[in-house]
Nucleic acid binder design. Structure first.
Length: 649
DNA sequence: ATAGGGTTAG
């Protein structure tokens, strides 16, 4: 009803002479307020028409003025309507109102904003340059609009150039200019320029505001100068939630996730509060740490909140549950989301895939298309690597082809890596090598690494040597590669070669990264380093649980396989050594401290070794616990002496 | 609407 009334009024206005009702409209609603109400209801066609007609005096209204143009332009920006904006711009250029465009920085800025918001940087640039050379002074706002346009489109270098151009014209930068310049420096990142901007901020007449300070924090985080992050943070007169969030982000970026968590807790203690951004980051941290308890706490905060949570925080909630191995929770949250985006679907699918639930992953993939979302390269990486781990080679190959033909996605290096891994794991190494030969890019270290792993799985020793040669060329100092080769020799009983690899590592000064595992008990994450934790291992409670466990496990047939040990020590010491692997320490600790019967979630910084994998299977049976072990490579759900990976990892 | 934050893979 309301819609038809409005459109009627416009037709009447433009064609027929004024009637009684229009006179009323005229007196009550002059041009600009009519434009405003039309814009508000999204009737841009009619608003534009009215403005152009008024300009030709074909309406009872007067001539459009600056306000008329900005009103309409404002509507174009909010609806990202490029077509209406273009027509308005051309109209201004062609009419005598051209002057308006040159004189009004507001109008010029808004056109720049509109064009760049619609991704039309060339047009934005033209609007920016139009007549600029003849002008004595261009307002800061015009430069800022242009710089923001570039920066929003990821064109940080050009954004910085605009900033410097502004300075060279003698325009004094204010806080708006500072924040966009810093944003550009963070995006590149460009330490030198950013520091220069920092110096200008210090010298500026205007006091830096909250946004500038926070942008500084982000800039120093992005270029890895963490000392400055702390310094700026300490010197700030006022700290808001975004400030604290920036500090958390700084710690996370530095891989100091515990400090990130601690900072978040400090925010609560100091009554700073939190925002969706804070919760999003903490959920991501919880996902990394498999800190289910912390993640659930945050979930509680989300539920308690009066506001409707945004899609990003829910996406990271999905990921947290997925990374903790709780796919039914993940699914429940997903189904309850009133607004989903591509990332939501990708997170769900990836969750199923990393947990080894490929039937569910494929079903979700189908549902995704039905719901009108188009799978992207991330979706396919999850699906392909899931197929690879699940041994679904044929399905994976079909997916790889569908990705190109149905979805028009050119496979990137990661997709090829999945394909190579898939074929290699299935023992089809020749085909895998064929893919490596034919693919359009240089094979990466990870591709040779996955081929080497395939050789390990299938006991191809001589091929492994050839591949290792390639691999060591690309990644000469990655200890994992040497460990893998050594394991291949050990499995084949070639102990002299094992020794050779060990010596090679010594000569090249390569040390195996210390294995560490962690497990969360209530609100605390406990971490263990391989061969460490002596105090704990000497405690009575440890010995008691360890001995009981070992006795049970020996009954069910567990015998240590010491081939995984790289060190040159006697057999007894080797057994001792594998017993000190970090995931076992974490497991015993959890058995002592976690609530009885609860599943145990352990996360490890390396790939789990073959002996620990066997050990965990027996341990799950002996202790009657579900164990969810997440290593760098994938998830292992141990239950009743079996692993979800079917020993295929 | 001339400015700031965060999520998925590898």
């Amino acid at each position: 009803m309301a819609v038809s009334c409005l459109s009627l009024s416009i037709t009447n206005l433009t064609v027929t002479p004024a009637t009684k009702s229009q006179k009323q409209l005229h007196t009550k609603k002059p041009l600009n307020s009519t434009l405003k109400s039309l814009s508000k209801s999204g009737k841009l066609d009619e608003a534009l028409h009215l403005l152009l007609e008024s300009h030709q005096s074909r309406t009872p209204f007067g001539q459009p003025n600056l306000e008329s143009y900005t009103t309409l332009l404002h509507a174009c920006i909010s609806r990202k309507s490029l077509t209406h904006g273009r027509r308005l711009y051309l109209h201004l250029l062609q009419s005598e109102d051209d002057e308006l465009l040159l004189k009004s920085p507001t109008l010029r800025s808004k056109f720049i904003t509109l064009f760049s918001a619609c991704g039309q940087l060339d047009e934005a640039r033209r609007a920016f340059r139009h007549g600029i050379e003849e002008m004595d002074c261009v307002s800061e706002s015009v430069y800022v609009a242009m710089a923001i346009g570039f920066s929003k489109n990821g064109n940080f270098r050009e954004a910085l150039l605009i900033y410097w151009e502004m300075l060279s014209k003698g325009v004094e930068p204010g806080n708006f200019a500072f924040s966009v310049a810093l944003k550009a420096c963070s995006g590149i990142p460009d330490t030198r320029n950013g520091k220069a901007v920092h110096a200008q901020i210090v010298k500026a007449r205007e006091e830096p505001d909250q946004v500038v300070y926070n942008a500084l924090l982000r800039f120093y985080t992005e270029c890895g100068v963490f000392d400055e992050v702390l310094k700026v943070f300490d010197d700030m007169p006022v700290r808001d939630v975004a400030t604290w969030n920036a500090l958390v982000a700084g710690y996370v970026k530095k891989d100091q996730v515990f400090e990130g968590l601690e900072t978040f807790r400090k925010m609560q203690r100091e009554k700073v509060g939190f925002s969706w951004v804070s919760l999003t980051m903490i959920l991501a941290v919880s996902a990394r740490l498999t800190a289910l308890y912390t993640g659930k706490e945050v979930h509680g905060q989300i539920v308690k909140s009066a506001e409707c949570p945004d899609v990003l925080v829910l996406n990271s909630l999905l990921d947290m549950y997925a990374k903790c191995g709780l796919m039914d929770y993940c699914r429940k949250v997903f189904d309850g989301m009133s607004f989903k985006d591509l990332t939501s679907w990708n997170t769900l699918i990836n969750g199923y895939a990393i947990n080894g639930w490929m039937t569910e992953a494929m079903t979700a993939f189908e549902q995704m298309s039905e719901a009108g979302y188009k799978a992207d390269e991330v979706t396919f990486i999850s699906l392909l690597s899931g197929c690879s781990h699940a041994g679904m080679t044929n399905e994976g190959q079909i997916l790889f082809d569908r990705m190109r033909t149905e979805y028009g996605i050119d496979p990137n290096l990661e997709h090829y890596a999945c394909l190579v891994d898939m074929l290699g794991r299935a023992g089809r190494i020749e085909e895998a090598l064929e893919v490596v030969k034919k693919m359009p890019m240089e094979p990466s270290g990870s591709i040779w690494g996955s081929l080497l792993n395939s050789c390990r799985l299938h006991g191809y020793v001589s091929l492994a040597e050839i591949i290792a040669k390639q691999l060591f060329k690309i990644e000469p100092s990655n200890p994992g590669n040497y460990v893998m080769l050594s394991n291949i020799y050990a499995n084949a009983g070639m102990w002299d070669r094992v020794k050779l690899v060990r010596e090679l590592m010594e000569i090249r000064g390569i040390k195996k990264e210390a294995g560490s595992s962690w497990v969360q008990i209530r609100d605390r994450v406990h971490s263990f380093v391989a061969g460490g934790g002596f105090e704990f291992r000497n405690s009575d409670e440890y010995r008691k649980v360890w001995n009981e466990l070992t006795k049970e496990m020996e009954k069910s047939g567990y015998r240590p396989d010491t081939g995984v040990v790289l060190h040159d020590i006697n057999e007894e010491m080797k057994v001792e050594w594998v017993c000190g692997h970090s995931e076992r320490l974490a497991m015993v600790f959890a058995l002592i401290h976690a609530g009885s019967g609860l599943p145990i979630r352990i996360t490890k910084n390396l790939r789990v070794c073959a002996d620990c994998h066997t050990w965990m299977k027996h341990a799950s049976k002996a202790s009657q616990r579900k164990i969810i072990l997440r290593d760098t490579n994938r998830f292992h759900h141990f239950h009743e002496g079996k692993c979800s990976c079917n020993d295929y990892w």
